[in-house]
Design a protein around this nucleic acid. Structure first.
Lengths: 190, 190
DNA sequence: TTGAGAGGCTAACGATCGTTCGGAAGGTGG
DNA sequence: CCACCTTCCGAACGATCGTTAGCCTCTCAA
């Protein structure tokens, strides 16, 4: 893919995150690229192509980040690593992450189905960590792992709204992990 | 406000939640109301009015729900009550809640500023619970209450994506509360 | 030196957008 | 019975939408 084409995708990610997919016109994109709107069609076939591309980039980034998490060792450490990985992607590719979390729903047809499949798979990989943690006895035996995963994923999926690039995401992830593991209650009242 | 006007607001909330504000045309709204699109202007001055109204309805609903939470008694119980209140609003007014969480950003000018103020205030009310819990010794003394509130608010704000009307929201809220308070770790490894 | 491809321009297309307007039907209160 | 108010219709408005077309101008490899 040419440099110009890559730049267009980045610009699309930025504008889609900022103003929404339907709130961003081809004219807006062209203006941001410093070009007449008709010229964009040297690179794409339709506006929907750009949404698809950014959404796929998001899928790829989040899955790749999870791939780097060890699949052995203490589950607790893997949960911490998974949260770190997720928040790192959000901070480093905030626009792409925003499209991945919020704008994907304007995809249509097969592309939408394919995206949803990948998104479900991502959440399932997350969920598996909590299930395994309970089964291996690292997490409490009576843990409702579906709810636990939902809580962790809520924090992960909501992060794009407040996380700003340059944040110390590893520390943030660790604070979340500590909270999830040990809770907020004082030792005395436990 | 006339019955017809109320119906229009409800329809707007539904369509904005379903297809997004910019993804919903005046024509879509008119069709859903069984009317020509010009006819809608007997009720509104602009499409933006509808977004503003639904967003305000969301603000009002969430604040009212928090108002019903006692301002004394054990903080832990008030946190549980606050989560219950929030999830109940999401489940009972899913469309309005969706606009409150996701579509508000298409508000413009003063209205946007006013909404943001109300939204900040809502989150601040939430945050105060965790601060107070720490100060009163009900939550651990070394609690990072900003992060704790962020985690709880993440769960609350993300709920519109998966909560379906008719869910037993009180139970869900209690599961979240239990997780937040006592964590996921097994007693043995604590 | 030539030719091909990449990237951009201008102009225009049909469609759809949000909004306006004058008029008419129907019900309500005086 | 009349005057009014609400609600809707039908038609049109200018603006903007995504997309297409033909043509021009570089760059660079053959």
């Amino acid at each position: 893919m040419s440099a110009r084409r890559t730049e267009l995708t980045r610009t699309a990610a930025r504008l889609f995150a900022e103003k929404g997919y339907h709130g961003t016109s081809i004219g807006d994109l062209a203006e941001a690229m410093g070009v007449q709107k008709g010229s964009l069609y040297a690179h794409i076939e339709s506006k929907a192509d750009l949404l698809w591309e950014v959404a796929r980039e998001g899928s790829a980034a989040f899955h790749a980040a999870l791939d780097a998490v060890a699949d052995e060792g203490p589950v607790v450490e893997r949960i911490r690593a998974a949260l770190r990985a997720h928040l790192r992607v959000v901070a480093e590719q905030l626009d792409v992450a925003t499209v991945f979390v919020r704008e994907w729903r304007y995809l249509e047809g097969e592309r939408r189905d394919e995206f949803v499949t990948e998104r479900r798979r991502y959440e399932e990989r997350f969920r598996a960590l909590f299930r395994e943690g309970r089964e291996l006895g690292e997490l409490r035996a009576d843990l409702d792992d579906a709810t636990a995963a939902l809580l962790a994923l809520s924090a992960a999926n909501w992060a794009y709204t407040w996380l700003r690039p340059g944040s110390e995401t590893d520390e943030l992830a660790d604070r979340f992990t500590a909270l999830l593991l040990d809770g907020m209650r004082g030792y005395a009242s436990r």
